Computed example of a mutant assay.
Amino acid sequence: MPCVLTPDPTAQETPARPTSTSTSLRDRSSAMLREHLRPTIQFLLVGGVVFLLDTAMYNLLVFWSPSHGWGTGLMHGTPLTAKVLTIAVASCLTYLGNRLWTFGDRPRPGTTRSIMLFILVNLIAAGLQLSCLGFSRYVLGLDSVLADNISGTLIGQVVSTSFRYVTYGRLVFPKH
């Protein structure tokens, strides 16, 4: 007769419980995700809309002529000046979008301070973006629509947007 093991009816099985460390880590991670997901998505949406406007304005200024159409535009010879103009317009729109929507739930104690820090952060970010465009144009000698859009608009925008995201939340629109 084979031996069959039966469970002891008096023994109680206790489910494996996560340790308090893993629970608190999970809770903290979840809370951090909830806290940062919404503003990150809103920041990216504001940035995405303004990015499209910046790109369109730059390409119109540098590569479109009212009399000749696409090719060499009114500011083809001065792309950095064109980029400064488009960044200035984009920065104003970015401030409004982020102040009113992305970080709209944060207090507004020092609007002048906030605007001054915003200008400083954007000047640094603009310098980063212009450096990418200037390097492509004046060091590598690339001046095509594709080269300008990759270096000044795409790469420059990624670098400057990363810088802006970190500094906006900490300096320009702080929680306290």
Rank of each mutant, 00 (worst) to 15 (best):
74 L>Y: 03
60 L>W: 04
52 L>Y: 02
162 S>E: 10
135 F>I: 13
164 R>P: 02
112 T>E: 09
72 T>A: 13
161 T>S: 14
74 L>H: 07
80 L>K: 01
163 F>C: 03
81 T>L: 15
101 W>F: 07
68 H>N: 08
120 L>S: 15
147 A>T: 04
2 P>K: 02
66 P>C: 05
93 L>D: 05
107 P>M: 08
87 I>M: 11
118 F>G: 02
122 N>A: 12
94 T>P: 02
34 R>K: 11
83 K>N: 11
114 S>K: 04
120 L>V: 12
56 A>F: 14
118 F>Q: 02
65 S>H: 10
52 L>F: 06
93 L>M: 14
39 P>I: 11
2 P>S: 05
116 M>S: 15
36 H>K: 07
9 P>K: 00
123 L>M: 09
11 A>W: 03
122 N>I: 09
69 G>Y: 02
108 R>C: 04
41 I>H: 06
98 N>W: 06
128 L>R: 00
85 L>N: 00
106 R>F: 02
59 N>T: 07
41 I>M: 13
137 R>Q: 08
127 G>Q: 09
111 T>F: 03
39 P>N: 13
90 A>Q: 02
16 A>F: 03
164 R>E: 13
113 R>N: 07
130 L>Q: 14
42 Q>H: 08
75 M>I: 02
45 L>W: 05
143 D>K: 06
116 M>Y: 05
62 V>T: 04
125 A>S: 11
139 V>D: 14
38 R>Q: 14
84 V>E: 03
40 T>I: 10
12 Q>D: 10
85 L>W: 03
125 A>D: 11
162 S>F: 05
74 L>T: 13
76 H>F: 08
148 D>W: 01
32 M>Q: 12
78 T>V: 07
54 D>L: 09
22 S>P: 07
33 L>P: 08
103 F>Q: 14
12 Q>E: 12
27 D>S: 11
24 S>M: 06
120 L>Q: 12
15 P>I: 02
42 Q>E: 15
125 A>W: 02
97 G>P: 11
61 L>I: 07
139 V>H: 10
58 Y>S: 12
121 V>K: 01
11 A>V: 04
53 L>V: 14
60 L>R: 04
31 A>P: 13
166 V>C: 10
145 V>E: 15
134 G>M: 03
120 L>Y: 01
62 V>D: 05
137 R>P: 00
21 T>N: 05
43 F>L: 07
8 D>I: 00
89 V>E: 08
126 A>P: 00
45 L>H: 03
133 L>C: 00
